[in-house]
């Protein structure tokens, strides 16, 4: 099982970042690390089993990964422009503002 532990450790680092970091850019970096760990596992297993065809499928996986990254990044830019911050704990949804205003009026 060559390189399986290496890719598992990388996956763990990515998941840790995804769960603990609040900055949108860090979350994106964590997702990238998770994707890289998955690809690393696939390439190394294919290499160990001497399957050259796997490289062709990997290029397809790269394209999908890049497209996903582009969509995530576009969403990040839109969210940070709309709410003025890249910290997810500071993002306030419109419904929350309305409910806060209603509670203030009620008091």
């Amino acid at each position: 099982m060559d390189f399986v532990i290496l890719s598992l450790v990388m996956l763990a680092i990515g998941i840790y970042g995804l769960l603990t970091k609040r900055d949108l850019l860090k979350i994106f970096i964590s997702i990238e690390l998770i994707a890289t760990a998955a690809t690393l596992n696939f390439v190394m297993l294919a290499s160990a089993m001497s399957k050259g065809v796997a490289q062709a499928f990997l290029i397809l996986a790269f394209s999908t990964d890049t497209a996903v990254s582009a969509v995530i990044l576009a969403l990040l830019v839109v969210v940070s422009k709309k709410y003025g911050t890249s910290d997810i704990s500071k993002i306030v949804l419109p419904e929350e503002i309305e409910s806060e205003e209603e509670s203030e009026v009620g008091q």
Binding site: V4, I5, L6, A48, G52
Partner: peptide, 18 residues
């Protein structure tokens, strides 16, 4: 973190794949 990866799993890939 890289210690378990080195001591438990890494070995040279097989010769001649492509």
């Amino acid at each position: 973190l890289s210690l378990p990866a080195i001591f438990f799993s890494i070995s040279s890939p097989n010769e001649v794949v492509t």
